[in-house]
Design a protein around this nucleic acid. Structure first.
Length: 282
DNA sequence: GTGGCCCTGTGA
DNA sequence: TCACAGGGCCAC
């Protein structure tokens, strides 16, 4: 469900809540969402202190004082919710893991991992081995960490259609279906265009659109379609700024053509047939 | 490359 | 009842 902007918003709020706190307990209700390493290691981080909360693509990484890190990928419907008390009173469906945090002996709150579809994954690994994690091992660099030149060189010459390339986390990590469509619209590139056919100018435009849209979405708290909420339960508002995602049949905000859609790389892609021209290789 | 699969819920 | 959903992996 959540893509880079939503994960970044969660990272920021989580960082504010957890930095400096100590893990005082862990309750595992549904081991299905844990990697083999996490089944062993998740309860071994008790008494460790949170140093930092990072993000790599759509993966959250909580670094702990003992040298281990907890990695959380929410996939489609995962949620991380922070509450001051054990959340027994609220509807408690699909809760899979609970972490209890304290400062000294004083209880500070509970972090709950909730996931309707159970596609999400939680891993525990030594920080030094992070890149070997089941979750991260195939990830390329984070899209917001790339310079324009790096971004261009990673896309240049790829045979696949640009939409598929943007969704490929090995090429760069962080983009998903919503933002890939919005970024392609913003840069006027048709999702079916072969990446190799895009000239440097078009790739540079794509880079600028990506940074602008991702940063704007972060500022607006991300996009809430149905499941996503912040760690504090607040929805995002960037969905109101969507131009093509799930706008099939609507008028394009720029030219009033009818937004079309089709399957690319197994995902529904929406685009404006007039604003987004399919560029052929020269 | 595409399609199926992992899951559950929702809306047409 | 069926298609589809912010993801990603695996086999063909």
């Amino acid at each position: 469900m959540p893509e880079l902007p939503e994960i970044e918003v969660i990272r920021k709020t989580l960082s504010g809540h957890l930095a400096g706190l100590t893990v005082s307990g862990v309750t595992i209700l549904e081991p299905f969402v844990l990697t083999a390493a996490a089944k062993q290691g998740l309860t071994q981080v008790i008494r460790e202190r949170v140093l930092e909360v990072n993000r790599w693509g759509k993966c959250l990484i909580i670094h702990l004082s003992g040298g281990k890190s907890v990695l959380i990928h929410l996939r489609m419907t995962g949620r991380l919710l922070w509450s001051l008390e054990e959340p027994v009173t609220q509807p408690a469906t699909h809760r899979h893991v609970l972490w209890y945090f304290s400062r000294g002996r004083e209880k500070q709150g509970v972090l709950t991992y909730q996931d309707v579809r159970k596609f999400g994954r939680i891993d525990v690994i030594r920080k030094a081995d992070l890149k070997r994690s089941e979750i991260l091992r195939r990830f390329g660099p984070d899209v917001l960490a790339l310079t324009k030149d790096e971004f261009i060189s990673r896309l240049r010459g790829k045979k696949a259609r640009i939409k598929a390339v943007l969704l490929d986390q090995q090429v760069m990590a962080g983009l998903g279906n919503i933002y890939a469509d919005e970024i392609l619209f913003d840069s006027g590139i048709h999702p079916k265009t072969e990446a190799a056919g895009l000239e440097t100018g078009a790739l540079a435009r794509l880079f600028d659109s990506a940074r602008r849209i991702l940063n704007e979405a972060i500022c607006q708290g991300g996009s809430t379609m149905r499941d996503y909420v912040h760690t504090d339960g607040v929805p995002g508002s960037f969905q109101h700024a969507h131009r093509v995602y799930r706008k099939t049949g609507h008028a394009c905000a720029r030219c009033e053509s009818v937004i079309e859609s089709g399957k690319i790389a197994g995902r529904t892609s929406s685009y404006c047939p007039h604003c987004q021209k399919e560029l052929k290789a020269a």
